[in-house]
Simulated scan of single mutants.
Amino acid sequence: MKYGDSWTRSRVLSQALRILMMIQSGKYSVSDIMKIQGVSRKTVYRYLDSFREAGLDINYSNHIFSLNRSEGIEGDLTDLFLFSPDEAVTLYNALDVIETNTLVRQKLKDKLMSIYGAHVVQEKLIRKESLHRVQNLMFAIDNEKQVILAGYSSPNSSTMRDRLVEPFRIGPDNEQVWCYDIDSGKCKTFKVSRIQEVQITDKSWRFKHMHVSGYTDPFRMISNDGRMLPCRLVLNRRAMELLREEYPLSEQYIQQTGPDQWLADIPVSNYIGIGRFVAGLLDYIQIQTPALQQYLRQYLHRSLDKL
């Protein structure tokens, strides 16, 4: 077996399951699946062909795919697995008190998230003081409602004021939300921790055609226009484990290439987040991206000047 084959196979199976569960819901088009799962149209149709070859009867009507219930699949597909959604949440919560390797615990949580979906276990990732705000944002997104971000504190303008927005996507770890800001007529990200209260209005979305989310990289850096920069690193085991522990979303971009060598080919919004990580582990990381090398030279030079 080649290095990384087991991880790749697990990733493909997890992705296939998520797509199958979306089809089962009967609410998503191919374009929706492409956007939510981050895959190409060709990939979606390849999975559809595989499902049909496996004997599933997949219907297509009004641009929406669904499963034919006559095939004997009753209820939710998660009922076919070891845990029910309630059991998955209980297990997820219990993992926090188990004394085990941090990476192992995080991988188990990630698997529960990928199989049972964000709405089932996502609340366990949210601090209690943010829970109500995130719940209201999720409700507004699901029901396509405008909301008021009451008392939003902006670090750029050093002001605190209400914002009327159309939220349409929750970011990684529920730390930010992508919204269409009606006052400015632009899509922006807002930090959930800086919102005092999310007030749901009775007004439906008016600018859905303007909803365009940028890119949030595994280091939680945001690109508002969706542009990504290349970042290619060669890591030893120590650097690889620290990267996956501190930034779990980076795991999908890591591939083992030798007994003590991993390749991380990660698209990033900018070099700020990845630069901070690499700067502390220069003895364990080979940088193969010239632009990142140049950024780090400038970053370290500025840091030394402050001493």
Rank of each mutant, 00 (worst) to 15 (best):
9 R>H: 05
9 R>G: 02
11 R>K: 15
12 V>Q: 15
12 V>W: 14
13 L>T: 10
15 Q>P: 03
16 A>W: 04
20 L>D: 07
20 L>N: 09
24 Q>S: 12
24 Q>F: 01
26 G>M: 05
26 G>Y: 10
27 K>I: 08
34 M>D: 03
38 G>L: 04
48 L>C: 03
49 D>T: 02
49 D>M: 04
55 G>Y: 02
55 G>K: 05
57 D>K: 12
65 F>M: 10
68 N>L: 06
69 R>V: 01
70 S>P: 03
70 S>Q: 11
72 G>D: 07
74 E>V: 15
75 G>C: 02
75 G>Q: 05
77 L>I: 14
80 L>K: 10
80 L>Q: 05
80 L>C: 08
86 D>L: 03
86 D>I: 10
86 D>C: 00
89 V>H: 05
89 V>Y: 02
90 T>H: 06
92 Y>D: 09
92 Y>T: 02
92 Y>C: 05
94 A>D: 14
94 A>C: 09
96 D>Q: 01
97 V>L: 05
105 R>V: 10
111 K>E: 12
118 A>M: 12
118 A>R: 15
119 H>N: 11
119 H>A: 03
121 V>T: 13
122 Q>M: 06
122 Q>S: 02
123 E>R: 09
124 K>P: 05
130 S>M: 11
130 S>K: 04
132 H>W: 07
135 Q>N: 15
140 A>Q: 04
142 D>Q: 14
146 Q>N: 13
146 Q>G: 08
146 Q>T: 08
149 L>C: 12
150 A>C: 08
153 S>I: 14
155 P>F: 15
155 P>L: 15
160 M>G: 12
161 R>N: 14
161 R>W: 01
161 R>G: 15
170 I>L: 15
174 N>R: 03
177 V>T: 14
178 W>M: 09
179 C>I: 13
180 Y>W: 08
181 D>T: 05
182 I>M: 07
183 D>Y: 13
185 G>I: 03
185 G>P: 02
186 K>W: 07
188 K>G: 01
189 T>R: 00
190 F>Y: 15
191 K>A: 11
195 I>W: 03
198 V>C: 07
199 Q>R: 02
202 D>R: 02
206 R>Q: 13
215 Y>T: 08
217 D>L: 06
218 P>T: 15
220 R>M: 14
227 R>S: 05
229 L>G: 07
229 L>C: 10
236 N>Q: 01
238 R>D: 10
239 A>W: 02
239 A>T: 13
239 A>Y: 10
240 M>E: 15
241 E>K: 12
242 L>T: 10
243 L>D: 09
243 L>C: 12
246 E>Y: 08
247 Y>S: 08
250 S>G: 06
251 E>G: 13
252 Q>T: 15
255 Q>E: 15
259 P>R: 08
260 D>Q: 05
263 L>K: 07
265 D>W: 06
266 I>E: 01
269 S>D: 00
270 N>T: 11
271 Y>N: 13
273 G>H: 10
275 G>N: 04
287 I>T: 01
288 Q>K: 12
289 T>M: 00
292 L>N: 08
294 Q>R: 09
299 Y>R: 12
301 H>M: 07
301 H>P: 00
301 H>A: 11
301 H>T: 06
303 S>T: 05
305 D>I: 01
